[in-house]
């Protein structure tokens, strides 16, 4: 039973854009994130982004597992089991906070948090980065990256990334 309110820095779930040392970090809010699972989901959604693919469209799918994708800015779908498509669907728009990371040092920064290389492809974009379970993929440009961080860990993940960035 301890009052630690002052021990932990307050946050309100918003983060101002961060620019330093060749790194830009900002939150972005996709309109919709949908978890879709199913036995043949990867063939339903060909072109799901893997590592180190670059997502360029506004609407795309992330390959998470052999039977799961995260659809970003897809059509609205009813939650639950879709018998016809054999798909389990859940709206997860608020489950992940999304960060856009870019700049010439972005990859360097990421290499602080995981054994990561553009030469080492991996089918799933789900990774452990600085101890956080995130979805990490390239977005928009050669040196652009996007991270989906579990909502409740967005604050420490942001702190970790920015503290590391100023030390680059």
């Amino acid at each position: 039973m301890r009052d630690d309110r002052h021990r932990w820095a307050a946050h309100d779930g918003r983060w101002p854009r961060f620019d330093a040392q060749g790194i830009s970090l900002a939150t972005t809010e996709p309109e919709r994130q949908t978890l879709i699972s199913g036995p043949s989901i990867l063939s339903h959604y060909p072109g799901a982004i893997e590592w180190p693919d670059i997502a360029t469209d506004d609407s795309y799918s992330l390959c998470l597992r052999r039977d799961r994708i995260l659809r970003v800015n897809g059509l609205e779908m009813p939650d639950g089991w879709n018998q016809e498509q054999e798909q389990a669907v859940s709206d997860a728009s608020d489950a992940y906070t999304v960060f856009d990371l870019s700049g010439p040092k972005a990859l360097d920064l990421l290499k602080h948090g995981a054994e990561l290389s553009l030469q080492k492809p991996s089918r799933s974009v789900a990774r452990n980065l600085f101890g956080f379970g995130v979805f990490l993929y390239r977005y928009g440009a050669e040196d652009g990256y996007r991270l989906h961080v579990p909502r409740a860990q967005a604050h420490p993940a942001w702190q970790t990334l920015t503290r590391q960035a100023v030390r680059l």
């Binding site: 309110r5 021990r7 101890g131 409740a152 860990q153 967005a154 604050h155 702190q159 503290r163």
Partner: peptide
């Protein structure tokens, strides 16, 4: 704070405004 970062509530700002004593 990053040794064992705690999960943070969406409503943390509301709790702080209500004078909450926060703990793990």
């Amino acid at each position: 704070q990053l040794y064992h970062p705690l999960k943070r509530l969406t409503l943390e700002a509301q709790h702080r405004a209500a004078n909450a004593a926060l703990g793990e």
